[in-house]
């Protein structure tokens, strides 16, 4: 990967971290876990940036939050959030984004696989988040699931549905580094137009 490509990806990763932070501002508190747009951007990060740079973007986001910058849900920040009851969801973004990126890279960006990747990602986020919520708050499994997962499933389905067209529209703009063969094939089939 040449330096120019790397610089572009650095800027894009920072942009996605910022977008995730913006998505976290509008938090609707409906219990211990608020509804946020944050995870839509995490899904998009995985799809658009791929595994490595997606991981970097989410890592930067979490680091900025741990430093106390107001990037977590509802304009919160601080290391206390990461180890607090909802910290599992935040840390779960890391493996989730990696997996989403990996699947979408391997599957040649077909819609079915994108949806599958995002489903897997969401499952990982909930696995980490709900387990951590249960450990920290000491609630029973059924209550933890009722507070930390069931209310969000419809929203998540919507977010996945929204992420697919966005990813489709933005992929030609970003051009994540792929293997040489894929790049040359894409260049022949659909030239990228820029203003």
């Amino acid at each position: 990967m040449d330096t120019s490509r790397q610089l572009h990806m650095t800027v894009y990763a920072a942009l996605f971290a910022a977008l995730t932070a913006v998505g976290a501002y509008l938090a609707i508190p409906i219990g211990p876990v608020p509804i946020v747009l944050q995870n839509l951007f995490v899904l998009l990060t995985g799809l658009l940036l791929g595994s490595r740079w997606g991981l970097a973007a989410v890592g930067i986001y979490l680091l900025a939050g741990a430093c106390g910058l107001p990037v977590f849900a509802g304009g919160m920040g601080g290391i206390g959030r990461l180890i607090g009851p909802t910290g599992g969801y935040l840390l779960g973004y890391l493996p989730a984004v990696y997996l989403i990126g990996l699947i979408s890279e391997k599957s040649d960006q077909r819609t079915v696989f994108d949806v599958l990747a995002m489903l897997c990602g969401s499952i990982i986020v909930y696995a980490c988040g709900v387990t951590w919520l249960k450990v920290v708050s000491g609630m029973s499994w059924s209550k933890t699931l009722a507070l930390g997962m069931y209310p969000f499933l419809i929203g998540d389905a919507l977010k996945i549905a929204v992420a697919v067209p966005i990813a489709k529209a933005l992929r030609p703009l970003i051009q994540v580094p792929k293997s040489r063969a894929t790049i040359s094939r894409e260049d022949n089939s659909q030239p990228v137009t820029r203003k």
Binding site: T10, A14, A21, I60
Partner: peptide, 16 residues
């Protein structure tokens, strides 16, 4: 790189 990226995040949030 991490230092640069944190600086960029700070720049991008108001821009968004």
């Amino acid at each position: 790189r991490i230092g640069t990226m944190i600086g960029l995040v700070l720049r991008f949030i108001p821009l968004i």
